[in-house]
């Protein structure tokens, strides 16, 4: 959208770090402030940033419509199925310890059983939701990039 060299180069430099930070927040949801929602929102924001500073096509190159819709359904489906796995293991729906998920030692990275799995699914879901919402609302405007920057 913006025809500005500085913005483009900066956002291209910064975007991978934002994505890495988002993934960190998602994966450490059970150890530090954060979790699936905040991490997913940060990850989604990086894709929105690319679409804003270049144009929509560049954003869609990062994550296509097909992939986004599969990820959305997949994230929610994975969450629901994790609950069903607990039933298969003999617990109630969405049970964690009582269904026999290995908890590990509290404070370690691989601890907390189903929480980590659910957090990852929620993170995927939120990241794809944020990008899809953004793309869908700005699509079918006048073709992007036709706006001449007037400054």
């Amino acid at each position: 959208m913006m025809d500005d060299q500085i913005v483009r180069i900066t956002s291209r430099l910064v975007a991978p770090f934002i994505q890495l930070y988002g993934i960190y927040i998602i994966l450490h949801g059970h150890l530090s402030p954060g979790g699936g929602f905040s991490g997913g929102a940060i990850f989604g924001a990086s894709l929105v940033l690319i679409a804003l500073s270049f144009n929509l096509e560049a954003g869609i190159k990062q994550i296509s419509h097909q992939t986004a819709s599969v990820l959305e359904s997949g994230g929610a489906l994975g969450f629901a199925l994790t609950g069903l796995v607990a039933i298969a293991f003999g617990g109630n729906y969405l049970a964690n310890r009582s269904a026999g998920f290995p908890l590990g030692e509290a404070g370690q990275f691989f601890s907390s059983g189903a929480i980590l799995v659910i957090t990852v699914f929620v993170g995927i879901k939120v990241a794809s939701t944020i990008t899809t919402l953004f793309y869908n609302i700005i699509e079918k405007e006048e073709p992007l990039g036709n706006h001449k920057q007037t400054d």
Binding site: H30, P33, G35, F79, S112, G113, A114, T119
Partner: peptide, 20 residues
Amino acid sequence: TGAINIISSVITDYRAFDTL
């Protein structure tokens, strides 16, 4: 629950149905 972030353990374990 194995998580030291209690808010995380509440939203994804104790009250996971809300999160669903």
